[in-house]
């Protein structure tokens, strides 16, 4: 893991950058996209995440909506990390992300910029913000898998 990913100043910059200039911030009109609307029951977070899976690969993933710094930046980073990955790779990334949020040892090589959130699990009332995008991505993958099994 690159050393710069251990620097709290870098973590702040990563989150600032992804909040102010989110990646993949758009929605698709294409009906073949999966869609997950994630509205927090306790705060303002209200994000829609969309995903297109083809032949076991995430060929597109994007999001839009209203959210705080943590929900916006984490969703931006996780869409960036999972875009172009196989479904299995994406699941592994999300699993590592949850491991990190649980404050357990994680693989920084897998999580890349998402390591900026390695301490957010200490703030119980921000865990929902930090996992709203992860939850959406996982939900759509499960939906696709469930659909393909039929």
């Amino acid at each position: 893991m690159n050393d710069y990913l251990n620097d709290p100043r870098i973590h702040r910059e990563i989150i600032m950058d992804h909040y102010q200039h989110p990646h993949n911030r758009r929605l698709s009109e294409d009906p073949s996209y999966l869609k997950a609307h994630m509205a927090s029951e306790s705060c303002i977070d209200d994000l829609t995440v969309m995903m297109k899976i083809e032949n076991g690969k995430i060929v597109d993933v994007c999001f839009d909506g209203v959210g705080c710094t943590v929900s916006t930046a984490s969703t931006s980073i996780l869409t960036t990390l999972t875009l172009g990955k196989s479904v299995d790779e994406a699941k592994a990334i999300i699993a590592q992300y949850y491991t990190m949020i649980d404050l357990k040892p994680f693989d920084g090589e897998v999580l890349q910029e998402a390591v900026a959130f390695q301490n957010v699990g200490k703030q119980a009332n921000r865990i929902n913000c930090a996992t709203i995008g992860a939850k959406a991505i996982l939900q759509m993958i499960h939906e696709k898998e469930h659909h393909d099994e039929k």
């Binding site: 709290p8 973590h11 702040r12 989150i15 600032m16 909040y19 102010q20 710094t69 943590v70 900026a116 959130f117 390695q118 301490n119 957010v120 200490k122 703030q123 921000r126």
Partner: peptide, 11 residues
């Protein structure tokens, strides 16, 4: 500042 807000969240 935005950075200060983020700093307290991820500290």
């Amino acid at each position: 500042t935005l950075e200060a807000c983020i700093a307290v969240t991820i500290a």
